[in-house]
Simulated scan of single mutants.
Amino acid sequence: MKLHPDQTRELALAVLDTEAQAILDLRERIDEHFMRACEYLLACTSRIVVTGMGKSGHVGSKIAATLASTGSPAFFVHPGEASHGDLGMITSGDVVLALSNSGETDELLTILPIIRRLGVPLIAMTGNRQSTLAREATVSLDISVAREACPLGLAPTSSTTATLAMGDALAVALLEARGFTADDFARSHPGGRLGRRLLLHVADIMHTGERIPRVRAEAPLREALLEITRQGLGMTAVVDERDHVIGVYTDGDLRRTLDRGIDVHATTIGEVMTRTFKQAAPGMLAVEALKLMEDHKISALPVVDDSDTLVGALNMHDLLRAGVV
């Protein structure tokens, strides 16, 4: 067995072209049937129950996951297991979304009478508009393809791609209708990077209490240098008697101080501190603090509350550890 690069590339491109065309063909089917399906799904007061056998089942699992993560509660039920007890998962407030390219999948047809008896809307996604599933459905969506991308015309390829694309179209249409936002998405993905970027606040990761680098303005410069070294954040806040931040001093400020030949033993921090500085608030999103640092090319920020009191400190390493960067 030998791989022929040119022939392999040609075949791979043909697969992509065939599947791309299958998706484009769906454009004409975003019609009144699609709109009715969206209306039933949007009116669902409970869950969207997705079911399908074989490759349709694998695609159905993904569609259910996409629906659930975009504001439409959904889960997948295997049709084979459904007839052995799992039909109890379907309640009167649900909507069933059934996937079958042929529309004649035995396991699905077996449970159709039960679904009909429950009185729940049945939305079919099938490649055969004359099939039993299509006829029994409340709404039938046509996901037929001209041909499979498999050169044998046997392996589900274009058909599964079209099914998945139609499922995404439903999910995104519902997302828009529900007014689902990026914050809503983040709340359903708290463990993912997007969730951390949209949900994590400065207060969640900032240094507090004794871990905040701070010195008084009248402190000798050498004391500020010790504080920067001790806390390891690359900066120290300079505060007044009320703990209000009046300046900052960073590693970069130290280099500039030394370049000017200033005596670190005879100078107070108040004389060399940066009086115009950037700061964060505890309620600020961590990703906003990151943008502030990136825009101004700084690596650390004091964190102050509404009364301008120092309550924390944050640096780039904290954002890295939290997975925001």
Rank of each mutant, 00 (worst) to 15 (best):
E241V: 14
M89K: 13
L225Q: 09
L226N: 08
T208V: 15
G93F: 03
C38M: 12
S69P: 05
A289T: 08
A149L: 07
G312I: 06
D6V: 13
G247A: 08
T268F: 00
I115T: 12
E39K: 13
D6Q: 14
L41M: 15
P190T: 09
S92K: 14
I228S: 03
L26D: 01
V303H: 06
V239P: 03
V95L: 02
A74N: 11
T91K: 14
D251A: 05
G57E: 03
L67F: 15
G60Q: 10
K297I: 11
I246L: 09
V50W: 05
S69R: 07
T66N: 05
M166Q: 02
R230Y: 03
S158P: 02
M273Y: 07
L11T: 14
D183M: 05
A137M: 09
R47K: 15
A82S: 13
M89D: 07
T132L: 10
S158H: 05
D184R: 10
E28I: 09
D318S: 02
L24D: 06
R117Q: 14
H244T: 15
F75S: 09
V264Q: 10
L3R: 13
L67P: 06
G179D: 05
D318V: 03
T126M: 06
G283E: 07
P220Q: 02
D6G: 10
A74Y: 10
D306C: 04
T132W: 00
L170I: 15
L133F: 06
S144W: 00
L314P: 06
L42Q: 13
L133E: 04
M316A: 12
S140A: 15
E271N: 09
T18C: 14
E294F: 01
I90C: 13
S72F: 11
G71P: 08
T236I: 07
H317M: 09
S92G: 12
L112E: 03
L16N: 00
R321I: 10
A173W: 04
M206T: 02
V215L: 01
G323P: 06
P302K: 09
R116D: 03
A165T: 12
R178A: 10
R135F: 04
I48P: 03
L152Y: 02
V245Q: 01
A237W: 01
A224P: 04
G209R: 14
S61C: 14
E227R: 04
S140T: 15
F277I: 08
D142S: 02
V303N: 09
S46P: 01
A280W: 07
L3S: 12
Q231D: 01
G153P: 00
A82C: 07
M125K: 06
K291V: 05
R117K: 15
D6F: 04
A64Y: 08
T66C: 08
H78V: 10
T105F: 00
I23W: 05
L200V: 15
V215M: 01
G195L: 04
R47F: 13
F34L: 07
P73C: 09
D240I: 12
L118Y: 06
V238E: 01
